[in-house]
């Protein structure tokens, strides 16, 4: 398999690039989601319509799906190799000064993956016509879903775990790219911290506003 996937460094590079691409995409997605806060359904629905019909976006979409798949598959392969590299565990372990969430990336990732599956069932597969639903009125669908407390809880928890995932992921990706610098790495870590708080928080505000104030 390593003949095809390359060295450990190459595998991490692929994963990091895919991850950084997803990080950029999340910003775009969040921007569109904020349109949900407007009472008028037209802006959000036309944005959703644009996202599903524009040619440029269609090309982008292929990259996006590939990005998700590559990130997830590579992540699982790396993790399995890592488990195999330590067949016998320690009896007594202690915490050393480390990037805390890095130890739980696979579990955080799996939870995010489960959320993604639910999310795709609700929206993306509807758009593709694989699952029934009114793909011209995602605004209405979102508002219906965000009346269900259980759905909101799952949504919020998923974004909390995404925040944890991103807290390690953001700065880790730069280290993987080979960028580590006395002066700039603290800046990257700072931006990563802000991103991993602000973006998941931005997503999380929307169901709360819809449930309580609309």
């Amino acid at each position: 398999m390593d003949k095809f996937l390359g060295s450990c460094v190459t595998k991490k590079l692929v994963m990091a690039i895919a991850g950084l691409f997803l990080i950029l995409f999340l910003l775009v997605h969040l921007g569109i989601n904020f349109l949900l806060l407007i009472d008028d359904p037209v802006p959000f629905n036309s944005a959703a319509h644009f996202m599903s019909n524009n040619v440029v976006v269609k090309v982008f979409e292929i990259f996006l799906i590939a990005g998700f798949l590559i990130h997830i598959i590579w992540g699982i392969i790396l993790q399995v190799q890592n488990w195999l590299a330590r067949p016998a565990r320690y009896k007594k372990t202690a915490f050393s000064q480390t990037s805390f969430f890095s130890k739980y990336m696979i579990y955080l990732g799996i939870i995010i993956g489960v959320f993604l599956f639910i999310h795709f069932m609700n929206f993306y597969f509807v758009k593709l016509g694989w699952v029934e639903g009114d793909h011209e009125n995602f605004y209405g669908m979102v508002n219906d879903l965000f009346q269900l407390p259980l759905y909101i809880v799952i949504y919020l928890v998923s974004f909390l775990f995404l925040a944890f995932h991103l807290h390690h992921a953001f700065q880790s990706a730069f280290q993987t790219l080979g960028l580590n610098h006395n002066k700039y790495t603290p800046v990257i870590k700072g931006i990563g911290l802000i991103y991993s708080i602000v973006v998941p928080l931005g997503f999380s505000i929307i169901p709360i506003v819809i449930y309580f104030f609309k």
Binding site: C8, L78, N82, R86, S102, S172
Partner: peptide
């Protein structure tokens, strides 16, 4: 790097 991979060491997670 090639030798390191062959010998069965794990991958780096930048854990520190």
């Amino acid at each position: 790097v090639k030798k390191m991979d062959e010998l069965g060491f794990g991958n780096c997670s930048n854990t520190g």
